[in-house]
């Protein structure tokens, strides 16, 4: 992130206290478990919430940065900038892997600001899965641009459930 990005994050990005977000996530998970009693479903619903947030987040990001990804490889710096814009933190590690018509992009963050201090009530619940839902929704809108037929994004590791880092993995299937 350059100096402009740092200034944008410090002075221009609207912020709320991380505790407010984490408290809300906790309450939502408790509600899902109470309502459905099924951690797998609770986890899927977290992602669904993220998907429903996708447009709001993407328009906010575009309005602030005017920097949509130009190609699949550009998703590496683009999502780094987006994560920084919304959380103040960059990813620690990003990998881009192409296997024939399958493209995998993996983002890892060790001190994830979204779940730091939270403890997942069940190993099937990835507490930052909302983020995976947001990512998935955004790239679904761009399938045509990437000449892809489908995309999924999941949180595959989460510090809140004892993993060493939070990990979000994209899987694009190209046409």
């Amino acid at each position: 992130m350059g100096i402009k990005g740092k200034i944008a994050w410090r002075f221009m990005a609207e912020k709320i206290h991380a505790g407010a977000y984490k408290g809300l996530v906790q309450a939502i998970i408790a509600h899902f478990l109470e309502e459905y009693g099924d951690p797998v479903k609770a986890n899927a619903l977290l992602k669904k919430l993220g998907r429903a947030t996708g447009e709001y987040i993407y328009t906010t990001y575009l309005a602030a940065t005017k920097r949509p990804a130009k190609n699949l490889r550009d998703l590496v710096p683009t999502y780094n900038l987006g994560f920084k814009y919304f959380t103040g933190k960059e990813f620690d590690e990003i990998t881009f892997e192409e296997k024939g018509k399958d493209v995998f992009i993996t983002y890892r963050v060790r001190e994830c600001p979204l779940c730091k201090g939270l403890h997942s009530p069940h190993p099937e619940i990835f507490m930052c899965n909302v983020v995976a839902g947001i990512f998935e929704w955004i790239e679904e809108q761009r399938l045509e641009d990437w000449n892809a037929e489908s995309v999924t994004c999941n949180e595959t590791k989460c510090r809140a459930r004892g993993d060493p880092y939070c990990e979000f993995q994209y899987h694009f299937k190209l046409k």
Binding site: E55, Y58, T59, L62, K66, Q141, R142, D145
Partner: peptide
């Protein structure tokens, strides 16, 4: 047109 085109245009 794709929705992404609308979103990106409006971002500008």
């Amino acid at each position: 047109i794709p929705r992404s085109r609308v979103l990106i245009t409006l971002g500008n």
